[in-house]
């Protein structure tokens, strides 16, 4: 337990000490939140009620998809994971601890948004905080799972960026994060957007926590939780300490299985 706490404390501090992570964990989501509040609040009257869910989703997406994979790949390439292995750090800690600390950073950003958005931009606050917590955890679990999985299977930092952007950019356009509700998209694009975890995160956070009936949010949270658990299990299974040592147990293409819950959700019609 002591080792876990020490590791967690170091990773948390890393998320602030490291300039790139500081940018992705705090500066980018908070800057985007202020920008969106200033612009969208004026031009789109439908935006304030969905501002907090969309900005919280954005904070989670940025910190996880953009912040988590690269340090993992860099650590493997630089031999840092070898140092960890010989000193008894288990693979599960390397996969799980950065995900937990990233969720903590996203939680702090979410708190800042929830505290300031109603006063600055007349945003609606969640009415069901338990629901908000449940959906936040499910979204964090799902997105950090996907992010860690990208870090585990990527052979280089360049490929990491490609994979991360492959989910991040469509999520920005189709996931309802930027203030355009996903329900307004054409049918085909709506189906396509359901393959992306951020769409489900937005759907979960923008329902039950904001006073809507719980069923739709809980379904989304269940899909996110299933996707998250599957992604972490695959990440631990496919984990490699060193790109040269052949320690990976399976084909990296197995990572695609992590999308199965979202595919099922899309087929079921959301």
């Amino acid at each position: 337990m002591s080792a876990f706490i020490h590791h967690l404390a170091f990773e948390f501090r890393s998320g602030i000490r490291n300039r790139s992570l500081l940018l992705l964990n705090y500066l980018f989501p908070l800057g985007f939140y202020l920008l969106m509040g200033a612009l969208m609040g004026r031009i789109n009257p439908l935006y304030p009620p969905t501002m907090i869910p969309s900005m919280v989703t954005f904070a989670i997406v940025t910190a996880t998809l953009l912040g988590l994979p690269d340090p993992l790949v860099t650590a493997r390439e630089a031999g840092i994971l070898r140092s960890f292995k010989i000193n008894g750090v288990p693979a599960a800690s390397i996969v799980l601890i950065p995900a937990i600390t990233t969720a903590l950073h996203a939680a702090l950003v979410s708190l800042a948004i929830c505290v300031t958005a109603p006063r600055l931009f007349s945003a609606a606050l969640p009415t069901n905080w338990v629901g908000f917590g449940v959906c936040f955890l499910a979204a964090s679990l799902a997105l950090s799972g996907v992010a860690v999985l990208i870090g585990v299977i990527s052979p280089s930092t360049r490929v990491t960026v490609l994979w991360s952007q492959l989910i991040f950019l469509p999520s920005m356009m189709l996931g309802g994060i930027t203030g355009v509700p996903a329900d307004l998209l054409p049918e085909g694009l709506q189906r396509l957007s359901l393959l992306l975890p951020p769409t489900w995160a937005m759907r979960a956070l923008n329902g039950w926590p904001m006073g809507a009936p719980a069923a739709r949010s809980l379904t989304a949270a269940a899909i996110l939780a299933a996707g998250g658990v599957l992604a972490f299990a695959l990440a631990i299974y496919l984990f490699s300490w060193d790109r040269h040592s052949g320690t990976r147990r399976g084909n990296p293409l197995l990572a695609l299985l992590a999308l199965a819950p979202y595919l099922v959700g899309a087929v079921m019609g959301g």
């Binding site: 170091f10 840092i80 008894g88």
Partner: peptide, 28 residues
């Protein structure tokens, strides 16, 4: 075993006392 690898590294932001604490904790 204790190992000093020929080519190994540590996270660039970890402090000297921090890594000593971390690895000793994992060794108990």
């Amino acid at each position: 075993i204790g190992v000093q690898l020929q080519s190994a590294s540590l996270p660039e932001n970890i402090r000297v006392d921090e890594v000593m604490r971390l690895f000793c904790a994992y060794h108990g």
